[in-house]
Design a binder for these strands. Structure first.
Lengths: 196, 196
DNA sequence: GCTTTCTGCGACATCAATGTCGCATATCGA
DNA sequence: TCGATATGCGACATTGATGTCGCAGAAAGC
């Protein structure tokens, strides 16, 4: 009855999403998980997984795209073109932390991070670099270091914070303030000029 | 003839070290390299590799121990129990950066990072936590965030800097100053109180 | 020089993950 | 209720990495 061959049935879409979700969760914990284990974790059968994703590579690409989409949505919601750069940056970091597991999935491993599908991610990074440069121009963000490094260090700290929450090093409620503090001001205090 | 069965021949030790070195270098780039490729990269034969390390797991453990040893040596050389905490911390970060590739090897992948052989690493981390607490006690290091998080964020930024040098985002000569700057002061500048 | 040791080389078996298929059953949508 | 679709299930072949072995040649040590 193919009402529209391009639009898969709702049921099919649901299992597809379930599998992707399970794959990301499993891959964050262990890059070497078996497709069987992913299928189990998704509450489905390995054969079904193969029906949705012919090969491991296909599932990987789908998971990457899904993650990038969510990170892009979060970035979008942070409205980083609005308001003072530092405020925007705080919103951005907070947004990143909410999708910390996706970020870890994308950058935990070079095989994934260097995947062609992640290259598309540069499109998401553009506005962020613009934001950083804007802050550097008005002096509110450190102009003495490359903007690319600022972006990189942000990612690194968000990554670390997300991981710290997962393994219990940080409590969920303290992660954001602690992260913002470290990103903004580092770890050294200068009592003479600023004792806060 | 066995002059001493516990002391392997010099030649044997050399190839062993060569293989370990090649393994770390290869694993940093790609967690899924074949033992054949590692052997090739070491300029030896796969069978020889198996003579030194019966299985992949053995080579992994040896590589982990080797890396931990070098990181421990670097930490030792930083003399972090000496002098003002902030100075010691700067020396420590600089020392970490010199062994950045080992650090990336150990923490790039959960399979390695959670390996029992890495647990021994807690022994290396003890003095670092002491250092951080010392700085928090005298007010030169941010006392408002957990010391474990400070240590974690240091690792994360060293990791990122080492990676940035490797992929060309940072030039080798600028990596250390940029890293120290970010670790110490974060990325936000506060013109009213400190315009440097 | 000679003996010991280590390495190069290639063959072989093994094993786990992957990918494919056919059929029965359950579930969804009209 | 009925037809189409999606899934569960298990069997099968394939493939690539791994680990083992024996032998011959090179290198190191005395």
């Amino acid at each position: 009855m193919q009402s529209d061959p391009d639009v898969p049935s709702p049921a099919r879409r649901r299992t597809r999403q379930t599998i992707i979700e399970a794959a990301i969760a499993a891959w964050v914990r262990d890059r070497d998980v078996t497709l069987s284990e992913i299928a189990d974790h998704a509450g489905t059968h390995r054969a079904t997984l193969h029906r949705h994703f012919p090969g491991r590579a296909d599932l990987l690409v789908a998971s990457i795209r899904h993650s990038i989409g969510e990170i892009a949505d979060a970035t979008e919601a942070a409205a980083i073109t609005q308001g003072p750069p530092v405020d925007a940056l705080n919103r951005l970091v907070a947004a990143y932390l909410t999708v910390g597991d996706r970020i870890r999935f994308l950058f935990e491993d070079h095989t994934v991070a260097n995947h062609p599908a992640v290259a598309q991610f540069a499109a998401v990074g553009g506005p962020v670099i613009d934001l950083i440069r804007r802050g550097q121009a008005d002096g509110t963000i450190d102009p003495t270091v490359p903007s690319a490094w600022i972006e990189r260090s942000m990612w690194a700290l968000v990554y670390a914070a997300s991981e710290a929450v997962d393994d219990g090093t940080l409590a969920a409620h303290e992660a954001l303030p602690v992260l913002l503090r470290t990103v903004s001001d580092g770890i050294v205090r200068h009592p003479r000029r600023d004792s806060s």
